[in-house]
């Protein structure tokens, strides 16, 4: 699973860095002069962040290292004093916890996403939409309460009155998806970008636009940062053209 994620990071990273050639080349900076910052980012950003890093190191002289996890996990870590410089959440609610605690600057929205059903390659259980996840004999895994993707999916099932009974509640989108790619579960609800990043290991079943929740990714500078200028440059770059193109290539939607 971990190996899979690593492979995925490098694969997406390669794919995105190769398509980022249109980016204006800024002042070249050596790794030694680059300011290192720690970015706590939602697990669903795993693939896209590699490209953002490349763009940033080149344009702003900022070298970012990432701590990926469920947004709720990352919030807990930051609340406990983990040394984050920037936090990128997969929902407003988790970012809101840090805003309420006065630990981050005003967040900006830098991406949106869509939900998608991930199934085994070739869709052997013939799942056509969310209603099929409530069918008997379909083993559905979801993300635990508090993990944004799981909360979005639960809200969707609730509004459609679907009695989906998951067989397991996973800690983030990647481990939920791993249960499907390993063949243990038949389906899960993750982001469209996760399905795209998993390649041939899974097939995606789209969810109708009318059912899509508003999935926005806010990013903010953590107030306790000791590299404020670099952190602010990182946040600015997230809404800039180059990173936006990379995010779009990974399947994200632009902020409204």
């Amino acid at each position: 699973m971990r190996t899979g994620r690593l492979a995925l990071v490098s694969a997406v990273g390669l794919a995105l860095s190769s398509c980022g050639s249109a980016r204006p080349s800024a002042t070249p900076t050596t790794a030694a002069s680059a300011t290192a910052i720690d970015v706590f980012a939602a697990a669903s950003l795993t693939g896209a962040s590699t490209a953002a890093t490349t763009a940033l190191a080149a344009s702003a002289g900022v070298r970012a290292t990432y701590n990926f996890g469920g947004s709720n996990t990352l919030v807990t870590q930051i609340l406990q004093g983990a040394p984050a410089d920037v936090f990128a959440s997969a929902d407003r609610a988790n970012m809101g916890r840090l805003v309420a605690a006065g630990l981050v600057e005003t967040p900006v929205t830098f991406a949106r996403n869509r939900l998608e059903i991930a199934v085994a390659p070739g869709n052997p259980k013939h799942i056509a939409g969310p209603a099929d996840l409530a069918r008997r004999g379909v083993n559905v895994v979801m993300e635990a309460p508090g993990v944004p993707a799981g909360d979005y999916a639960r809200a969707l099932f609730g509004s459609e009155h679907l009695g989906v009974r998951p067989v397991s509640l996973e800690t983030d989108v990647k481990s939920a998806l791993a249960k499907v790619t390993s063949g243990e579960a038949d389906a899960t609800v993750v982001y469209a970008t996760d399905v795209a990043a998993a390649g041939a290991a899974t097939s995606g079943v789209p969810i109708a636009p009318a059912l899509q929740p508003d999935i926005t990714y806010p990013i903010a500078v953590v107030k306790a940062t000791r590299h404020r200028a670099a952190a602010e440059a990182f946040v600015r770059s997230a809404v800039s053209g180059a990173v936006q193109r990379d995010l779009e290539a990974a399947g994200f939607l632009p902020p409204r």
């Binding site: 469920g70 709720n72 996990t73 919030v75 807990t76 609340l79 916890r97 635990a144 309460p145 508090g146 993990v147 509640l169 800690t171």
Partner: peptide, 8 residues
Amino acid sequence: IYLDIESG
């Protein structure tokens, strides 16, 4: 315990 800590 793990999930409760994660979700606050």
